[in-house]
Every structure is written in structure tokens, then in C-alpha cells.
């Protein structure tokens, strides 16, 4: 390149300055990249809800950039009491303990109730319907075992730089977790 410059037309002041700035910019960018390496992490971070801090306020359903939200209710079956009168499934003081719509707490009928054996019923979430409003989570937390809880579902979540639910979360329950452990699940009954 140096030879070429000698043989070609004389370098003007503008060109010289431009070349100089380019070299400086390249060096700067290189140095910046070098600095950045210390801040790098090949593992991406993803957003998740800490169920212990969740206040079940219902904002997950409304604040997510996706409609319906990427937050869904999930069920820790090992923690569930399999109650016949599930306070996560039924409205307060239901007419009858059946699957009629007026008895259900869930606004979109996303919880399926299935008889297992007397007197136990199993409750499963249909995530294609769930909107993440957390009404069932509140019911289960307040009067039950707390086996229903909200989680960001990573097959749906776009992993925004700044989760818009996290910004609005009154419980400060959202945090970034490593992609290798993307869920903060409740697991099993701890005492009793």
C-alpha cells in the first residue's frame, strides 16, 4: 500500500487527515473491542420471574410487548394438594364444584380440571389459552398451596433488551437469568 501511495498522485491534506482518522478509528474500535471482551459472555441472559417475589398483580398480562403475553401460569404438580375445591380454579363461593364457566376463576378457561380419584382432581394449564393474568395464581397463593405460579415461557419470549413487564413489575420480581437455567420453578412440598 505504501508503494502505491508513492507512485500515485500526491496525497492531499484532506486524504491524509481522512486516512489518519480511519487508522485512529480502527485502532479505537479495536481497543474498544478489546475492552469489551472483558465484559463479554457467550451465554445470553434471559428474563425470568422469581415466584417468591411475584405479587400476582396482573400486569404480566397487559405490559408484555406480545399480545397475549409470553408469561404463562405453570403448575408445580408435586406441590399441588389436588383439592376438589381449588381456589385457583373456582371463583369465591362457586354455585357448584363443576366445570361450568360461571364457576371458573380463569377468564379464558385455560385451566383444565380432571378427576383422578376420590377426592382428588388434577389441574393442568392450556398455555395456548393462558394470558398470564395471574388470577389463578392469586387464588392458589391466598388459600391453597401456591403450586400455580407465573413464568416467562421462553418459546414465546422475544427476550427484549429491557423487559417491559420488568419495568412495570411492582414486586421487582423480574431478573435476568443465564440461558442454561432459564426457569425459576417451584419444585416440591417442603414440610409436613
Amino acid at each position: 500500500m505504501a508503494d502505491q501511495e508513492k507512485t500515485s498522485a500526491p496525497v492531499t491534506r484532506r486524504d491524509f487527515l481522512r486516512q489518519g482518522s480511519r487508522v485512529a478509528a480502527l485502532t479505537g474500535l479495536g481497543g474498544f473491542a478489546g475492552l469489551l471482551v472483558s465484559k463479554l459472555k457467550s451465554e445470553t441472559l434471559v428474563w425470568q420471574i422469581d415466584p417468591a417475589k411475584c405479587l400476582r398483580c396482573g400486569r404480566c398480562a397487559t405490559e408484555c410487548v406480545l399480545k397475549p403475553s409470553a408469561v404463562k401460569c405453570v403448575h408445580a404438580f408435586a406441590l399441588c394438594g389436588y383439592c376438589e375445591l381449588c381456589t385457583g380454579y373456582f371463583v369465591p363461593e362457586p354455585n357448584e364444584l363443576n366445570t361450568a364457566a360461571e364457576n371458573q376463576l380463569c377468564p379464558v378457561s385455560a385451566i383444565k380440571r380432571r378427576w383422578i380419584e376420590d377426592p382428588y382432581y388434577e389441574y393442568t394449564i392450556d398455555e395456548t389459552l393462558c394470558i398470564g393474568c395471574g388470577k389463578c395464581v392469586e387464588g392458589c397463593h391466598r388459600f391453597g398451596n401456591g403450586s400455580l405460579f407465573l413464568q416467562v415461557r421462553h418459546n414465546l419470549c422475544l427476550n427484549c433488551n429491557e423487559c417491559s413487564i420488568a419495568r412495570a413489575c411492582p414486586g421487582d420480581a423480574f431478573r435476568r437469568v443465564p440461558v442454561s437455567q432459564p426457569y425459576l420453578l417451584k419444585t416440591s412440598y417442603s414440610h409436613g
Binding site: 417468591a52 417475589k53 411475584c54 405479587l55 408435586a78 406441590l79 399441588c80 394438594g81 389436588y82 383439592c83 397463593h141 391466598r142 388459600f143 391453597g144 398451596n145 401456591g146 412440598y189 417442603s190 414440610h191 409436613g192
Partner: peptide
């Protein structure tokens, strides 16, 4: 938050 949960044994 979690004090009241886990009322019914599985």
C-alpha cells in the same frame, strides 16, 4: 410472601 402457602399436604 410465601409464609402462608403450602396448607394442604400433597
Amino acid at each position: 410472601n410465601a409464609a402462608a402457602e403450602q396448607r394442604f399436604p400433597p
